[in-house]
Design a protein around this nucleic acid. Structure first.
Lengths: 231, 231
DNA sequence: AAAGATATTGTACTTTTGACAATAATTAGG
DNA sequence: CCTAATTATTGTCAAAAGTACAATATCTTT
């Protein structure tokens, strides 16, 4: 049987990389950090690091994200695992990507530890990244778009209070096609929304009503009926 | 920064596990092998083993599947990665699950190497398995059911020539609900099928026509129209 | 040739979708 | 205050897709 030999720290190890998505100005953005250590010192990258030997990988994802960006309490979902033997220049490092959604406005992103700088970058303007992070990001982005279509996660990207038009714009982005306003409203009828008394402010026209996702009612609905979300 | 130390072979390594699904007698089955070495000697398990240090993980999945079961040329898809630090009794082993579909009749399964015995087991009668393989299997099974609903993969499970009723039964299984025969046929109208001249044999009633999936025509259709598979 | 069994097709009704039009509520400028 | 401009919101109608159920067709068995 094959015998594996270890030489040093980097011979065989495991990491996680966190793709954090946000939405502003009509576009999905990803959170990038600027690396301040080798390898790829000075390159942009998605936040990631090695998993401790006795640490669960999803716990590692939360820890590493927090260490590098101060972001806490995000719901991280597993994406894909990347195992090309040459993906890391210093040895064999297999990595699992995680992703999470957040409202960009909710957090002032603050880099810490060995990440000097952090920035939200529109998904279609991602520069050359460290390691195989461009690959990781594009695979995970595809997964995000798929999830947007099949799960009510748009509300994690939109502000807490949003207009139906803002919601529609996000789906138009996901499907890359325009939708009819009246028909869109018909389609989302079954999704329980809280209707606020407030309206949009600072617009030069009739202001739209503000809504929020009624998550507890949505959970009820899933239990009591056989509703299946699909946009 | 955290310093990782290695003690022996099993301190930190990486494996793949292959979930092979088949369909017969109206039920999805998984291919299990009986282990003939420690740990979990004598237990049933899904085929899996360690990845070589310079081997791509998807290549490892193919190699290991072939070594343990003689099965070759299956289209393996990545499923989930499992990283509980205690999932392996001898050390830290993170594993990525892969899955594939096959026509049970196409292969006489033949165990080799350290797997003494192999067996197709209905998914609802899976015994206690080695490691966290029950968890891996059930997660991957959920993924399979989801894929069955959203991709034309039923044809990888059905015999090459199948009746429309056989196809319907598979979807009834996936959705766990009965369907109307006439309506089912209307629904699958857009899926290109090759109609054979042969009919079912050895049945005590009017034999059904046999069909095959017309894959090349399906690919054409995807390119030329905006058809989206959904059952 | 008739009965039994399942395959295959047809019909009518209901629901959903899609295109487009009409009405409502604000702001901005006179 | 009145009117135009602008976007929000709701309504209508026909086409398409989905659902329930019935009718007909083809084979085996007796």
């Amino acid at each position: 049987m094959y015998k594996i030999e270890f030489n040093d720290f980097f011979t065989y190890s495991f990491s996680v990389d966190c793709v954090i998505f946000g939405y502003k100005e009509g576009q999905i953005h990803a959170l990038l950090i600027k690396r301040s250590m080798e390898p790829y010192d000075g390159h942009w990258a998605i936040p990631g690091d090695l998993v401790y030997p006795d640490e669960d990988i999803s716990a590692a994802a939360s820890r590493i994200l927090s260490e590098l960006t101060k972001i806490e309490n995000l719901d991280l979902h597993q994406s894909e695992t990347f195992g090309d033997p040459n993906r890391h220049p210093q040895g064999r490092v297999i990595t699992t990507a995680y992703f999470a959604l957040m409202r960009i406005d909710d957090f002032k992103v603050e880099a810490s530890s060995w990440a000097g700088e952090a920035r939200w970058v529109p998904i279609h303007k991602i520069p050359q990244l460290a390691f195989d992070h461009n690959l990781i990001l594009s695979s995970t982005y595809k997964l995000l778009i798929q999830k947007l279509k099949n799960d009510p996660i748009c509300f994690d990207l939109l502000p807490y209070k949003f207009t139906l038009n803002e919601m529609q714009k996000l789906y138009e982005y996901a499907y890359d096609s325009d939708m009819d306003k009246a028909n869109f409203r018909k389609k989302i009828k079954p999704i329980p929304l809280i209707e606020h008394k407030e309206k949009q402010v600072n617009v030069k026209h009739r202001p739209a009503k503000l809504f929020s996702f009624d998550e507890s009612e949505y959970v009820n609905m899933l239990e009591s009926s056989e509703y299946q979300f699909k946009m």
